[in-house]
Design a protein around this nucleic acid. Structure first.
Length: 830
RNA sequence: GCUGGAGUGGUGGAAUGGCAUACACGAUGGUCUCAAAAACCAUUAAGCGCAAGCUUGUGAGGGUUCGACUCCCUCCUCCAGCACCA
């Protein structure tokens, strides 16, 4: 495209103003000045090769918010950083031979260039890069604090293992039980792993969601599901002929009389003891071994057939002293509850299926009086509520009431106790990978596992390590790294060789931006308390659970150890929708990636920004259309020509005209209505699409007035000037380059972003004459123009005098006459 | 199954009790041009009608109301998250 073909010289002005803003330090913030602070934060990205227009939505939205808040007089902090540790860089290194650090830092350079091109401005002096020692030193420090508090611990756990890649995989990298990259079936390996005890915070993480009214409902719902609180009773069963007790957790204590067997997870610690001495012990053991070997992922699938084996033992049901057989089955998970359940086939579908398979008794204890249930013929479990039956003293009660009564009975007679269970598991944070922050633990034969003391941090990630995937931590093979001295006894000791999950890095970065260069602490508590919680957090909904839950956990932990004075990090959260192309999420493998580079060179960054914002409500997914983007480009060309035309009109002579014409009054009104609308759209939420369409309407009306006649008096010129100035101002957060240029073309000083956001004039939007809609029986029949302050009697008279209305209502009785002032009249006739 | 969200022209969408389809994309016709692009003007929910206009219409069916895309009830469909969680 040649210069002549451009609708306006975007290429020249965009680079010019980007340089200008950077040289003036538009978003440089002095954190000591926290009066009217506004912390606008976008989720920091993983530094991948290149951004596409879908990624851009996040940064564009954030930039609009930051620029708008600045014009509203806030001291805006808007920093950016990079979540720079992680598997992709390491995999690329294995494949291409480039060191992860080198490729990561290169990617960061590319991404920074792309962000600059979009006209997205940050306080780059505060950049946080999580793979650099000055940052991960403090990630390690937080680990040691958690360790001191007993919230970081090590235990054996099953991890995902890809036999073909010879590596451990994160849960997120396992798709339908197979390796995300090579599709091999994932196995389970029992290894020593590090965990954070997030389950200690489950209750608070759930309850405090109520403190977040400005988080999207769907995000809170996802977190609630993930934490998964349930209330029930833990029953303490006596085992017949053994001194041990067996604990079972149930949410349906009302069905206790219907328990016809007990089921244990194959991993349950009592399994060996229970089967020993049984006739079929050997055969049982074989089946148990088989179930244990099945991958956790396939076992957790409801489609997998239920299998089990009888232990030969019984428990005593405390409510009726019946002997209940103990079985072992693959459908019981050791990780939830107590790993043992009381099975009630009549009222639980899974128990029902198992009972059918192994011909175990089914006993109905909750009945539906209208539709009596028969154990012999029932096709599926009756899981709903009903009336208690076959339940001794509780017969006849409603099952909902019986839950409380039986729980009371259990507690009174010390047969069990009420208990709350969470689905949430502890956070497995160790990775047998190279490209992450080393876990700062030292093992000494004499002193045990010891956290690396603060003054010895960071534990530097060595650069000369062979990191081909063998399934073991690459750091294990670096003697230089492994061999160290015990911080306590100074004897020979070994370092932990696992690295931390990158979600640990990203769970506290928003605190670091306030004092990014602090060397003796992770952050300055006093300043952080001034600037946080974050006023607006913006990011993708894909982080609704993990990142946001982990960040909330770490914030609460830091609050508990008095490092911060707040226990929720993000006051307002906005999650933007994805940008779709050809019906699918943009991805290199699908080949449907829209690159911003070509679009920016053809139409300019402002066009890409405007279209991204105009495409639809930002919280919803949207389909990218190149034609739609061209439409945004044409609009900007139209604005450019309009401003030039209004600005260059020379006929600013005074004429005798002292009152505005109808059209001029209308435009002035539209100007102020638009200021009102755009301001409300920005304050009341993220309604960028409607804000932009209202500006388009103002541009259209301004254009019409200009086209409707020559500019030949100062009153008309004034009206047009006012409209055009409002257009430029209101557009500025969305399309900053063209707005800044037009601002200067209009002869205004400084930067438009140092100006105050316009306020609308109430007097300009009141109307003397209004058009009212006239309905008869709710159907639109006519419109009339009446003075805005018309009284009811006058209005009635006017309406009934209208020829169309006269025709319809003539001779009929008017039953009701409804008036919505300045808007509508509805006449109800018989 | 549970939880959250959505369903409106050819398309993206607007309207949260008061003119349904703003704004834009696309389409059709026209002006300008040697021509094209751009720009500008007009039309663009469906049906009936020469027309003024009339009728129907916001996933389906009921209800509340003078009046319902909007509120209530019963469904259907789609999207997302979780799911053998006892």
């Amino acid at each position: 495209m040649t210069n002549d073909e451009k609708l306006y010289p975007f290429d020249r002005i965009e680079s010019k103003w980007q340089k200008f803003w950077r040289s003036k330090g538009l978003f440089k913030v002095d954190t000591a000045d926290y009066k009217d602070k506004y912390y606008c934060l976008m989720m920091f990205p993983y530094p991948s090769a290149a951004l596409h227009v879908g990624h851009g939505r996040n940064y564009i939205i954030g930039d609009v918010v930051a620029r708008y808040k600045m014009m509203r007089g806030f001291n805006v902090l808007t920093p950016m950083g990079f979540d720079a540790f992680g598997l992709p860089a390491e995999n690329a290194a294995i494949k291409g031979g480039i060191h992860p650090e080198e490729s990561t830092l290169n990617n960061i350079k590319t991404m920074k260039r792309q962000l600059d091109q979009w006209g997205v401005e940050y306080d780059w002096d505060r950049v946080v890069i999580s793979c650099l020692p000055d940052y991960y030193k403090w990630t390690q420090w937080i680990f040691t604090k958690l360790y001191e508090e007993g919230l970081a611990y090590k235990k054996k756990a099953f991890v995902n293992w890809c036999p073909s890649c010879k590596t451990v995989l994160a849960n997120e990298q396992v798709v339908d039980g197979a390796c995300e990259r090579c599709d091999s079936g994932v196995l389970q390996k029992d290894l020593e792993q590090w965990f954070f005890k997030i389950t200690d915070y489950a209750g608070r993480l759930l309850k405090d969601l109520d403190k977040l009214p400005n988080w999207p409902e769907r995000v809170k719902a996802m977190q609630k599901n993930w934490i998964g609180r349930s209330e029930g009773v833990e029953i303490d069963f006596k085992i017949d002929g053994l001194p041990d007790r067996l604990k079972c957790y149930t949410t349906r204590i009302d069905t206790i009389y219907g328990a016809t067997f007990i089921a244990l997870a194959p991993e349950h610690p009592l399994v060996e003891k229970l089967i020993s001495g049984s006739k079929e012990a050997a055969a049982a053991l074989k089946l148990i071994e088989k179930m244990r070997a099945e991958s956790k992922i396939s076992r957790a699938d409801a489609e997998v057939a239920k299998e089990g084996v009888f232990t030969g033992r019984f428990v005593i049901n405390p409510v009726n002293n019946e002997k209940v057989p103990i079985w072992i089955s693959n459908y019981i998970l050791m990780e939830y509850g107590t790993g043992a359940i009381m099975a009630v086939p009549a009222h639980d579908q899974r128990d029902f299926e198992f009972a059918k398979e192994y011909k175990l008794p089914i006993k109905v204890v909750i009945d539906d009086p209208k539709n009596p249930i028969d154990a012999g013929t029932m096709k599926e479990a009756h899981v709903g509520e009903g009336i208690m039956t076959n339940s001794g003293q509780f017969d006849g009660m409603r099952s909902e009431d019986a839950i409380e009564k039986i729980a009371d009975y259990f507690e009174k007679n010390k047969l069990g106790k009420r208990s709350v269970q969470y689905r949430l598991r502890d956070w497995l944070i160790s990775r047998q990978r190279y490209w992450g922050a080393p876990i700062p633990i030292i093992y000494c034969d004499k002193c045990g596992a010891i956290a690396v003391p603060g003054k010895e941090l960071p534990v530097l990630l060595p650069k000369d390590v062979e990191f081909r995937p063998t399934g073991e931590s690459p750091l294990k093979f670096s003697d230089k790294f492994v061999n160290t001295k015990c911080p306590k006894c100074h004897g020979p000791a070994r370092r932990e060789t696992d690295t931390m999950d990158t979600f640990v890095d990203s769970s506290w970065y928003y605190l670091r931006y306030i004092t990014p260069k602090l060397e003796d602490r992770p952050f300055d508590t006093e300043l952080v308390n001034r600037w946080l919680p974050v006023d607006q957090y913006i990011g993708g909904v894909e982080h609704a659970i993990l990142h946001l839950l982990y960040s909330r956990f770490i914030t609460k932990f830091l609050f508990d150890i008095k490092m911060t004075g707040f226990d929720e990090p993000f006051k307002n959260l906005f999650t933007q929708g994805m940008i779709i192309k050809d019906g699918a999420k943009m991805s290199k493998s699908k080949g449907n990636v829209v690159s911003p580079d070509k679009l920016i060179s053809d139409y300019g960054a402002d066009t890409v920004r405007l279209y991204t914002l105009f495409i639809g409500p930002p919280e919803k997914d949207a389909e990218w259309s190149d034609r739609g983007a061209e439409g945004s480009y044409r609009f900007l060309g139209r604005v450019w020509r309009l401003v030039e035309k209004v600005n260059s009109s020379e006929l600013k002579v005074d004429s005798k005209k002292t009152t505005m014409t109808k059209e001029e009054l209308s435009l002035r009104r539209k100007t102020h209505l638009t200021i009102k609308k755009v301001t409300e759209d920005l304050d009341g939420g993220f309604h960028f699409n409607t804000a932009i369409s209202s500006i388009m309407e103002l541009v259209n009306e301004t254009h019409d007035l200009l086209a409707g006649g020559s500019v030949n008096d100062s009153l008309r010129q004034k009206t047009l000037d006012e409209a055009v100035e409002a257009v430029v101002m209101l557009l500025s957060p969305f399309v900053p380059h063209i707005a800044e240029e037009l601002w200067h073309i209009l002869g205004k000083p400084n930067s438009i972003f140092k100006m105050r956001w316009p306020e609308y004039d109430r007097s300009a939007i009141v109307e003397d004459v209004v058009t009212m809609v006239v309905q008869v029986n709710g159907r639109l029949r006519s419109r009339i123009e009446v003075p805005a302050d018309i009284k009811e009697d006058g209005l009635k008279e006017n309406v009934l005098a209208d020829p169309k209305i006269k025709e319809i209502t003539g001779g009929k009785t008017i039953k009701n006459f409804i008036i919505v002032p300045k808007k509508l009249v509805n006449i109800v006739i018989g």
